[in-house]
Nucleic acid binder design. Structure first.
Lengths: 205, 205, 205, 205
DNA sequence: CATGAATGAGTATTCATTCAT
DNA sequence: CATGAATGAATACTCATTCAT
């Protein structure tokens, strides 16, 4: 009998998780199409095919749901920004691989990325904070890498702070152009190589 | 008598223009503080010190007013991005001066810049279009400059498209960090120099 | 075998009754704390420790349950308002005992009394009707007692109708003050004596 | 011109006050009929014949409006409970006049009185506080009067606290019966006399 | 019998826009 | 031209009740 109850509970929990996932997924699509502000809870429940009350059974509101979607993406991203080991050879290949992974992740999560770039800022203190934290993390990561590079003599003398800003901004713009601003595919490998080539060697002849 | 009427009309038009300018200016401040979505028409008329009806006498609505503010800024910017004559010597100095002018303009219009970066996207088809156009313009300008540079042998062989994206993104990020994200001043000249140094020569030793 | 079934049924009914009683009791507490309107069915099922559906298996809804609680209290009260035999001596002692019994009953059911006084009116036609009926019953009881008293010469000539209203109202106010409005105990006997003294002899010297 | 503007402003303010009064009056009727909880903002705006938005232009919500109605009544009442001067003769006549005034005021404001008695308690902390304060004031007034009476020898030795409770409760019940519980008129003078006769002299022969 | 996920009608409240004065 | 009271469609959210498991 306890097994039967366990079974029931288990099935209940599974169903709950499935519902949550279903609402998250359909909401993601709606947000990506309409944008956060233009999306009403009615839009979300309609897309999810559930009643208004059901929506609130799973989420505290559209902002809370949105926050969860953002967390999903930043988690995805963090998992893909793994460190480059400068003591090992083939640094440029490692960097290339990292940039490719980041771009591929964002392409795979195009809807979320679109939301993130288009409307995530200024919605909500919690969202802003989360994004600012991610931003600082990213910037710090690049700046430290440059400083380490300078210490080991790979990187020439330069303003590591500003260069970190430029590297992050360049990547952000690539995403804006090739992931957010279009539905077309692009050659991730080629773009990643061009990015590295530019950032490492500049444009002067 | 026609002169008298002209005088009246003139005075009327001047007053009208002054009112418009006053409402635009006060609205700009409110938008910069509260953000577009958190700002209501009530906030705007209160800040302007005019009646609600008067507001609609001068603008078609809060979005239309916002659009005008954006146009102001993009016009300002356009005026400051003047071409670099690569055939003349001192190219790097010319670029340095251009970057400095852009940054200085944005610092001078911090409120507008903040609005532009924080919330302008996804508000409205018209706004999006205008921003996209400016973006394309900027990108094209840089890309063409790079191609010309390649033609005259100043710029090494590279993917001009991607490099243009990286240059624009780098500048955008600098603005995000040093203009939008803080109220503190920064050394425009030093940052401009670091930007050029990075973009021209890359980071490798 | 029929015995066995009887046993089963009996056990089933007992369990049912126990469940009902448990839900009634916990609901009473919640109503007394939060008040009728501020109490949701969720509060009730949570307090009872049963599922939402189970609640509706035992009661038609929160109003129906509330009505049952009210009936409990009015039944308790009716049982304690036993007639005074004016032909027998010691009338004042009998009245004193009656008032004490009423007050003691209400103190013993403080939660219910509180609900009754604070929020029972205007909830629902059924509740209102029940309360009005109890009210009329009480009023009639006192009025008749006064008339009988007049007939036997114990009560002086007066407006029995109005006096009945005043007697009931006085008692009601005592309950409001000493039972509903506070959690402190009070000297039931002393108050009952003061009540009778006042109502029987007035305040004039 | 300043006169003209003054005129405009004056007219505007008058109109505002008239609207407020109109909404208050129609809301009062609805509350008296349906009761507070059964009344929705929709009911109120429909009764007032204004748009939903207009309602919120004048009141913060239905609770705020309700609070204003209650304040109206308690102000009316306070103005009618003027002290009895025991040093002057004809004390009983003075009391009679006071009771008559109170009853007349409540009859004149039957709708408000009905609301006050039926549903004012337990709605809201602010309302409760206001009512409790009025209650305490009333009780204190009577208790002090009894004590003064005892001091000057008009009132016999008794428990002034409990007697005050009984007097207030008696009056409250009279109102409940003759004002709140029916739409019929009653002989205010006769009832007031019966009330005083009962409270002053009791029921015993 | 018991469960609790799902429902959807209902509620309060906001706010861009209009228009009579 | 200027005003600001009035509008009402739209929005987020609640909660008593049902019903498949």
């Amino acid at each position: 009998m306890s097994e039967e109850i366990d079974g029931r509970v288990r099935r209940g929990l599974d169903a709950r998780e499935a519902r949550r996932a279903q609402i998250l997924e359909s909401s993601l699509q709606v947000f990506a199409e309409r944008g956060f502000h233009a999306t009403s809870v009615s839009d979300l429940v309609e897309a999810a095919g559930v009643a208004r009350g059901t929506f609130y059974l799973y989420f505290d509101g559209k902002e809370a749901l949105f926050l969860e979607l953002l967390e999903d993406l930043t988690r995805h991203l963090r998992e893909n920004i793994v460190g480059v080991d400068l003591t090992r050879g083939g640094m440029e290949d490692q960097l290339q691989a990292t940039v490719e992974r980041i771009l591929a992740t964002l392409v795979d999560n195009r809807a979320l990325t679109r939301i993130l770039f288009r409307e995530a800022v200024g919605l909500n203190a919690a969202v802003d904070e989360r994004l600012a934290a991610f931003d600082a993390e990213l910037h710090g990561y690049v700046a430290r890498a440059l400083q380490v590079g300078q210490a080991v003599g790979i990187v020439r003398p330069l303003d590591a702070e500003v260069s970190a800003v430029l590297v992050v901004g360049g990547l952000r713009e690539v995403v804006r152009r090739y992931v957010v601003g279009t539905d077309e595919m692009f050659d991730v490998s080629r773009v990643a190589r061009a990015v590295l080539d530019h950032q490492l060697r500049g444009v002067l002849a």
